[in-house]
């Protein structure tokens, strides 16, 4: 198990290197730089600024400097926000995303899991057909449509909840963004849990357990729960990655100060260090989530454990 972990962490390094390099190359290949603006700067000032951010050095030296700083966990200074490091910007934005993302996933797991289980107990009945029909709808409506619609209904028409802004620790400000982000995943999770539960309950070993005279709750909890969780766990890897990108939209719509907005404004303003920093951070988070998923998998399934 320890070897598996080490191995995974080692393979993560080249992946991160690829991501960092791709981001760096793309940005520097592009025509134009961060300090080309409409108003022409005095050449001396332009030079001073560029040398401050080492933009006057040859590209390969910039690249090595960048990798060296990355290795130390330093994303460098922001080009846009003077005297602020990218690390500080991320540290400001990340809690917002962590709050919305975890609230959204929790909502999706609770709502989707419950719906899927209820549907699975009576496949074909209205308790199955109705929520699953809604789930198909939920999958087809993107976050950037549901988010404005939620604002329209709950903030603008009903005045129940605020339409945006961020107040740390306020659940009223958290609820709508989290809900918008959660809806597609709720739909996916409901479908996955339903299918997995129906499949698990149809397994011959469930019949074996029934034939032993075990009560239903023991059969469900001891014998059927784990196989039901497996597909859900494997969905959580991509889901967590999706929540990251989804939060870009949600932050935009609700005007929240998270790293998604930091990234978009950074990209529009050619803030190289912000863009590469956030991209590498996203990559690291995705790798981390996938590792977590694999660990869950191994924890749940002895056959996977044997292979790792």
């Amino acid at each position: 198990m320890l070897r598996f972990l080490l191995q995974r962490l080692l393979t993560a390094i080249p992946t991160l290197l690829v991501i960092a390099t791709l981001a760096f190359v793309l940005l520097h290949l592009a025509p134009g730089g961060p300090f080309d603006s409409d108003k022409v700067l005095v050449p001396q000032i332009q030079h001073a600024i560029e040398s401050r951010y080492h933009l006057d050095e040859p590209l390969w030296r910039q690249y090595l400097r960048y990798l060296g700083e990355l290795a130390r966990g330093d994303f460098g200074p922001s080009f846009q926000y003077r005297n602020t490091s990218v690390n500080e910007l991320i540290a400001q934005g990340l809690p917002v995303d962590a709050a919305i993302g975890s609230a959204a996933l929790l909502l999706a797991l609770l709502l989707g899991g419950a719906t899927g289980l209820v549907a699975a107990t009576r496949p074909g009945s209205w308790r199955d057909q109705l929520p699953m029909g809604l789930a198909v709808l939920g999958i087809s409506i993107p976050v950037f449509v549901t988010a404005p619609l939620l604002i329209l209904v709950f903030a603008m028409r009903l005045h129940w909840l605020p339409s945006g802004d961020w107040v740390a620790g306020s659940w009223r400000h958290l609820l709508l963004p989290a809900l918008a982000l959660a809806l597609p995943y709720t739909a996916y999770i409901a479908r996955i849990v339903r299918a997995a539960a129906i499949e698990a309950l149809g397994q011959p070993y469930i019949r074996t357990a029934r034939a032993k005279g075990l009560p239903t709750h023991v059969i469900v909890l001891r014998h059927a729960l784990r196989p039901t969780l497996m597909p859900l766990v494997s969905f959580l890897g991509p889901a967590l990655a999706g929540v990251l990108t989804g939060s870009i939209v949600v932050e935009q719509v609700f005007g929240l100060p998270g790293i998604g907005r930091l990234f978009v404004t950074g990209a529009l303003n050619r803030d190289y260090t912000v863009v590469t920093g956030v991209t590498v951070l996203y990559g690291a988070l995705i790798i981390g989530f996938n590792l977590l998923v694999d660990l869950c998998y191994a924890w749940l399934d002895p056959r996977v454990r044997a292979r790792t």
């Binding site: 791709l22 990655a241 990108t245 863009v275 956030v278 996203y282 996938n290």
Partner: peptide, 12 residues
């Protein structure tokens, strides 16, 4: 698979 695509497309 581990590359965050939407950010990359935005960068592109």
């Amino acid at each position: 698979y581990a590359v965050p695509f939407i950010p990359f497309v935005i960068v592109l």
